[in-house]
Amino acid sequence: MSRSDQILADADAVLTRTSDRYRSLSARTRQRRNAAMMRKIKRISGAILSILIGAAVVGWFLPLGANGIMIVLGLILAAVLLFGLTGGEQRVQAEKLAETDIKALPLQTEIWLDNQRKALPAPAVQLVDSIGVKLETLAPQLATLNPQEPAALEVRRLLSDHLPELVTGYQAIPEPMRRQERNGRVPEKQLIEGLSVIESEIDRMTQQLASGNLDSLATHSRFLELKYQEAKQLGAPQSLAEPGPS
């Protein structure tokens, strides 16, 4: 294979991996929305069933009549409206991100960002999608991280302070002024540049956390190798599998 063919093959592989990640992001968004819809349907169905059972019990002793039937239909309509307007897709408030557990923060930030898409320009939406993919990669790295460690505080500051402030600051600017230059700066361009910096920072944090895990794995691996060598020198490799009495 020629060098140019290899370059094309590598580029195609990168595009494939990126496409797979974006599909995964879209699939998770659909799953969340489908789950919210199913919760609504279950609540509405349960309420209607309860109303009908209650009406049947009452009708067993007293005829409902036209007024009773109208009351039942009114209750059913009220239940549909009540549960149809509540219990939908999870809404995350920007000010609540600071209170979110560090392990859940990437997903909560992703949900919040997804809800902001319609209010952002197209180039910013592409960056939001990319940030969502990187948050998916970051999440497992935070699963065992102490919330008080400097790395955790840095992640929290970026996701619950800097990112929401950047997006909400842009949204607070009136629509006609978002593409107008003021003091040498254009708000839309500032937003895109800021999101790009945040995307790079999330990538850097993920790599640093992963590097720490790899270093820890290497340390444990060397420890096990030393223990194995000691056991061999003692002529008792079975001690690894058969711990002695405490």
Rank of each mutant, 00 (worst) to 15 (best):
A27M: 03
L105C: 11
L158E: 11
R39S: 05
L191A: 08
A9E: 11
T109S: 09
G235E: 04
K232G: 07
G244F: 04
L77T: 03
I202S: 09
N183F: 03
E99D: 15
G235S: 05
N183Y: 04
L85E: 05
S246Y: 03
G84R: 00
R17S: 10
I102E: 13
Q233A: 10
V125A: 06
M177N: 15
L81C: 00
T137A: 13
F83Q: 06
A98H: 12
S24I: 08
R43M: 02
R204F: 06
I76P: 00
E89A: 08
W112V: 07
I7C: 02
G65A: 03
L240V: 00
S216K: 13
P187S: 09
G235C: 08
L75A: 01
R117P: 00
L135S: 08
S19G: 06
Q93P: 00
D114K: 08
V197C: 05
A119C: 04
T168I: 09
M205H: 14
V133E: 08
T219I: 06
V80S: 04
S26C: 09
R23D: 11
L82Q: 00
E154W: 11
G235L: 07
A152N: 12
G169I: 12
Q148C: 09
D5T: 07
P164R: 12
L163N: 12
L97Q: 08
A27S: 05
R28K: 12
R3N: 05
R156C: 08
R179I: 08
L52R: 08
R17G: 01
L107W: 09
L62C: 01
E225A: 15
I202Y: 11
R179T: 13
G212A: 14
S200Y: 07
K96V: 03
D10A: 12
L127H: 05
V133C: 06
I131K: 07
V128E: 10
Q141H: 13
L145C: 10
K134F: 02
Q208E: 15
I131Y: 05
V155S: 14
V155N: 14
M205R: 15
S4Q: 10
Y170I: 06
S2W: 06
E154N: 15
E188L: 11
E175P: 04
A124H: 05
S239Q: 13
K40H: 06
N34T: 10
G59C: 01
A143I: 09
P164T: 10
G212L: 15
Y170T: 08
L234P: 00
L209R: 07
S239K: 13
S221T: 13
L209D: 12
R204W: 08
M38A: 10
A56Y: 02
E175T: 11
E225L: 12
G87N: 10
E230F: 04
T18E: 13
L25C: 02
